[in-house]
Amino acid sequence: MRAFLPERPDQKYMQLMRWGQLRREQLHQAILVTKDTVLGYLKRQIERGNWREVQDVLRGKPMTRAGKFLLEELRGRVVGNLIMRLGLRKVIAVGIAFALLPFILAKVSGELIGKARKD
């Protein structure tokens, strides 16, 4: 997952804000919406028994057909929620989703690994 993390994440966020013409609070809301969407979606998939696919997505390697499907569906849900909750245009929501999703997935996988190590 480290491959997804930029050297200077603050610089990436500033570029994203300029490109999407977003205010700092809108970007913060977009991050929260993305995180809520990811967590909710992954929990539902785990409850359905799709643990291996979720694990592949969290590792950043959705090699299986089901893992690729989960990642595409997750991206679509994030874009939809950004449009609905924040009222963003589709092109901006897609750009934000593609930029934020790897960071959020890396953070979620890091938190899960940390919890697993404690247990």
Rank of each mutant, 00 (worst) to 15 (best):
57 V>Q: 06
22 L>D: 00
45 Q>W: 08
99 A>L: 05
22 L>Q: 00
86 L>R: 05
2 R>P: 01
20 G>I: 02
91 V>Y: 05
28 H>D: 14
21 Q>I: 01
102 P>G: 05
2 R>K: 07
104 I>T: 14
66 A>Y: 02
47 E>R: 14
105 L>M: 07
86 L>P: 05
37 T>R: 03
41 Y>T: 14
71 L>D: 02
46 I>D: 12
21 Q>T: 03
48 R>K: 15
71 L>Y: 15
84 M>Q: 15
69 F>H: 09
84 M>F: 13
40 G>P: 02
85 R>K: 13
104 I>K: 06
51 W>C: 12
51 W>N: 10
68 K>D: 03
10 D>C: 04
103 F>C: 00
74 L>I: 02
4 F>H: 09
1 M>S: 06
85 R>Y: 10
44 R>W: 08
25 E>P: 00
110 G>H: 06
78 V>E: 06
62 P>K: 03
81 N>R: 15
43 K>G: 01
102 P>F: 12
86 L>C: 08
10 D>R: 13
48 R>C: 03
114 G>W: 09
47 E>Q: 15
101 L>G: 04
77 R>S: 05
40 G>L: 02
90 K>H: 12
82 L>T: 07
100 L>R: 03
94 V>M: 04
57 V>N: 12
16 L>F: 03
82 L>E: 09
105 L>C: 07
7 E>N: 05
12 K>C: 04
118 K>C: 07
93 A>S: 04
119 D>R: 15
23 R>P: 01
43 K>I: 12
109 S>G: 02
47 E>S: 15
55 Q>K: 13
18 R>C: 01
31 I>N: 07
52 R>H: 08
37 T>W: 02
20 G>Y: 00
51 W>E: 14
16 L>I: 02
2 R>E: 09
14 M>D: 12
90 K>M: 10
76 G>T: 08
23 R>D: 10
10 D>S: 14
117 R>G: 05
57 V>F: 04
86 L>H: 05
79 V>F: 06
102 P>H: 09
47 E>I: 13
104 I>R: 00
95 G>D: 11
103 F>I: 08
95 G>T: 12
54 V>K: 06
12 K>Q: 13
107 K>T: 12
97 A>T: 11
64 T>K: 05
119 D>C: 06
66 A>T: 12
119 D>G: 12
57 V>E: 08
118 K>N: 10
18 R>S: 08
36 D>C: 01
85 R>G: 00
103 F>N: 02
100 L>Y: 07
79 V>C: 11
3 A>I: 04
48 R>D: 08
92 I>P: 00
88 L>N: 06
91 V>C: 00
